[in-house]
Amino acid sequence: MDEFALEPARAQAPMAGAPFHVWVFPDSTPWTEFHRSGRNYLLRFPELADFEVARDGRTVRAWPAPGVTEETVRHLYLNQVLPLAQSRQGKIVFHASAVEVGGAALAFAGESGRGKSTLAASFAVSGARFLTDDGLLLEPRGAEWLVRPSHPSIRLWEDSQEALIVAGTPTAPPVSYTSKARFLAGERVRFCSEPRRLHRMYFLGAGAAGAPRIAPLRPAEALIELVGHSFLLDIEEREQLAAHFDELSRLAAAPIYFRLDFPRRYAELAGVRAAIEAHARAEGVTA
């Protein structure tokens, strides 16, 4: 159970100490500061909001900075804070999107800008359904892993919107920190609301390939990628890190990981989807 409480706006008072971890934008501006607050965590998004995450990750309280909309804070919560809070619950969450093909889940992992959401949206407007556009939550089920559906919306930059989304598709209200629009699932952007077995996970390359290229990863390579793409709130707590590393090692042992690179041209997305589907089916997707 994840509990979220939106508190009244308050100014961001200076913190007593330096953060124990910081996420920065490419220009080195801080995007998220990770502080300790008693036994809990305080995540500060400068000039946007403060979030207090309980030590067990089950409850989150948010204080918007003055003038920041509730919608912005909820957006930050869903996309940034919730996956971190879930990591405190011992859950496995990745920077990855996922779609349902042939009754099973295909996941696409990559840093921001690698095209996770664009690829998921491309499938979701072309007959398949998406499970998440980021914050991929996996749960073990016997020897397999289930992908849990997340929020039924996809965030896209303007160029991807123009290429993929037909006019009139419902959107969530705009938020103040990004020009990405959030498209709500429906008849045009189809969403899968039931968990699906993880069949393949593709790590997205930088777009250097002239045609879709898929290559398998060895388990050790997969483990390194999984570590690099997972959400973790507290990178200093050894016991939880060890458990996290164990879980990822178990996950990495399955032969389901591949590098995927393809040219970043919208006109070629249909070919990219076809290559991915053929690859997944050749490897034995079953419903």
Binding site: R218, P219, A220, E221, L223, I224, R238, A242, D246
Partner: peptide, 25 residues
């Protein structure tokens, strides 16, 4: 160092310092 962890996967071993993100296969 205490914070460095090792796990065996397949025929290989991955050494990792999660706090710094450093790894070695």
């Amino acid at each position: 160092p205490e914070e460095v962890m090792t796990r065996r996967v397949g025929d290989e071993t991955v050494i990792l310092d999660l706090a710094t993100g450093t790894y070695f296969g």
